[in-house]
Design a protein around this nucleic acid. Structure first.
Length: 163
DNA sequence: GCCAACGTTGGC
DNA sequence: GCCAACGTTGGC
């Protein structure tokens, strides 16, 4: 059974790795996902403690800012029930929520930000989804050896994965 | 700000 | 249930 890692995208202007770090428990529900494939990863596949590469999109340059981890099981995305939220979804029934999420907890910021162009150029990262053109999915599975390589590029010791 | 890709919506 | 139109993502 291979260990699974993940990559989760966020626009740093909206919610950055530094924002996660400054939360009281350094934990935040990953709300606002309105894509079924991404939801299914959170609902069905993520395990407590799985490592998460925190990716900054829509910024210059885009890239992986650091490491986080899955810190809850699946639970309803409450924004779907909030009429004032841009993520409100009238089709999500509180008794049978359409949108589920997990909590994500800060682990560490990379000493070296790993920009997208580095991911694309690195031969060891060939096939990594985020490095492919037109890959828009905001939550992606990451192979374990790709995770280790990105940690190395970021300047983090893989011992952090054991915490 | 452009625009390719692609997921979603809704008319039929 | 097809598929055109529309909206969103996200790199550039």
């Amino acid at each position: 059974m291979a260990k699974q890692a993940w990559l989760m995208k966020s626009e740093p202007d909206v919610f950055s790795l530094q924002d996660l770090k400054s939360r009281p428990r350094q934990t935040e529900p990953w709300d606002g996902v309105r894509n079924y494939q991404a939801r299914n990863f959170m609902r069905d596949s993520m395990k407590l403690g799985d490592p998460v590469l925190f990716y900054h999109s829509n910024t210059n340059p885009p890239g992986v800012a650091g490491l986080a981890k899955v810190s809850s099981g699946p639970k309803p995305d409450l924004l779907a029930f909030d009429k004032k939220s841009k993520y409100f979804d009238p089709k999500s029934d509180p008794d049978n929520p359409r949108w589920l999420l997990v909590d994500v907890k800060y682990v560490a910021e990379f000493p070296n930000y790993v920009a997208l162009n580095l991911l694309k150029e690195d031969p060891q990262l060939e096939g990594m989804l985020v490095a492919k053109r037109w890959q828009r999915l905001s939550i992606q599975p990451v192979d374990w050896d790709h995770l280790l390589r990105v940690l190395e590029l970021g300047g983090l010791d893989e011992g952090l994965l054991k915490s």
